[in-house]
Amino acid sequence: MFKRADGNANVEITFEFEGQTVTARRGDSIAAALLAADEIVFRSTSERRRPRGPFCMMGICFDCLVIINGEPNQQACQARAVNGMSVRRQIGAATLSADEEGANDG
């Protein structure tokens, strides 16, 4: 479990992850906010459908890819948490359009 080590429980931003509300502080990346909410699985891989989560937190491993507001292949560690965002796990290959969300096997 990740916790806020400075004891500061400020909630400044809320967004949605897989339909659930997640809170964040100003300046949090999506990845940080999700880790704080005890979410560590962000996606599954294309070939073997293995679970992955954030690894490097500096934008170079591309393991933290999520779908933000319908846009696939977003690095959660590079995206700032913003009020009202809708974030989903990226299962396998990315989806292309709203019609294909939930469609699957790619």
């Binding site: 806020r4 500061n8 906010a33």
Partner: peptide, 14 residues
């Protein structure tokens, strides 16, 4: 490095 990033940017630690 990821642990440091989380600590610095978001005061998050495991």
């Amino acid at each position: 490095g990821a642990a440091q990033t989380l600590l610095k940017s978001s005061a998050l630690a495991a």
